[in-house]
Design a protein around this nucleic acid. Structure first.
Lengths: 187, 187
DNA sequence: AATAAAAAGTGATCTACATCACATCAGGAA
DNA sequence: TTCCTGATGTGATGTAGATCACTTTTTATT
């Protein structure tokens, strides 16, 4: 379980045992059941999360109360309301488990200590942030260039396993399409 | 002009003269006229660009030949086809001047040397990447939650000066709306 | 100043998708 | 088993926004 984080980091950057001991000392472990919240809207965001197992959704709720799924995150992903986390403000979104989920938690203070104490980790986070940005940009391009059916097919191709783990309503919410339209698309 | 870069970095992280001399040695200067291309689709992407003055658009052209503006970038911004840049592959987009533009250019090799040679710069790029990601996420949320008119008003509020510098067709392309619809919205 | 070219506005029509309403089906709890 | 809740499918209808066609205005170019 802590080994998962090591394997994850070492996909990019090799670490010595000593370095990894330093890294892991900045994380705590938490477990959540399906339907529990890691982050609640309007509450502070004490942690960013590395997901060891399970699946969560980051949700923005608009004024009318409608939920919009900003992202899903599963094993081997990082998630949080990063804006609220970095700026230490209250969350504008919620982060909720769609499955029982185990995470490693990192406070902003520990995040900074990690970056200061081990340049490799700063490099690692830079790569994560860069490719996170590129993933979002890709999604924007998908919006600009494609209709609902095409976006659905792109998502299916990119994350086929997601479709066995979340309901179609959730997929619809992520794609920005009504669940009825999605139902008609996939038939 | 090189001082612009220093001021830009020092908004986040102070530098000594010596450090800045090191930083600036990794950049070259280029000037482009309106309508010239910094990056052409299907060509390699040798540089990322820091914009000293002027305005550029990052454009994705779909199969039907329709142009979609992925982003605008003006003074004090960084821009490139970052995916192609980091992976050293051919560009899928083009980067074109909407005004006469002056930039500082950084190769991937120099970018890496900068990060290796001065931890402050790695920190700086990490902050840029993080807030770039957050900006994209914000735009996705805007798509998920708002109609054309609302997205138009949000953009107007966020970047009022942009509207004096680019045509409404360009704004429409960025918002993912037809120029006719945009014209009707703003009246 | 004359001409060309790009930008912007506007009507008419079409269509992708939302919304509403209801039926069906599967899984969990008493 | 029975009841309940959430997920899914599907028809009928409404609407935001696309597309097409044309005009007017603004901006460049000679």
């Amino acid at each position: 379980m802590k080994a998962d984080l090591r394997a994850h980091i070492e996909k990019n950057i090799p670490l010595t045992d000593e370095e990894f001991t330093f890294v892991i000392s900045h994380f705590s472990t938490k477990k959540f059941k399906k339907h529990q919240f890691l982050i609640q809207k309007d509450e502070p965001v004490p942690y960013s999360y590395f997901i060891i197992s399970g699946l969560v959704k980051l949700v923005f709720t608009d004024e009318s109360g409608k939920e919009h799924i900003v992202s899903f995150a599963m094993e081997d992903w990082w998630e949080s309301d990063f804006y609220a986390y970095y700026t230490q403000t209250k969350s504008t979104m919620s982060l909720e488990c769609l499955e029982d989920t185990e995470v490693l938690c990192c406070t902003l203070e520990d995040y900074k200590k990690l970056c200061d104490g081990l340049q490799k980790m700063e490099r690692f986070f830079l790569e994560k942030a860069t490719f996170g940005f590129l993933g979002s940009q890709r999604r924007i391009i998908s919006w600009l260039t494609s209709n609902s059916k095409e976006r659905y097919e792109q998502l299916l191709k990119q994350y086929p396993t997601l479709f066995q783990r979340v309901s179609k309503s959730q997929i619809a919410s992520y794609l920005g399409v009504s669940r009825e339209t999605l139902s008609r698309l996939s038939s």
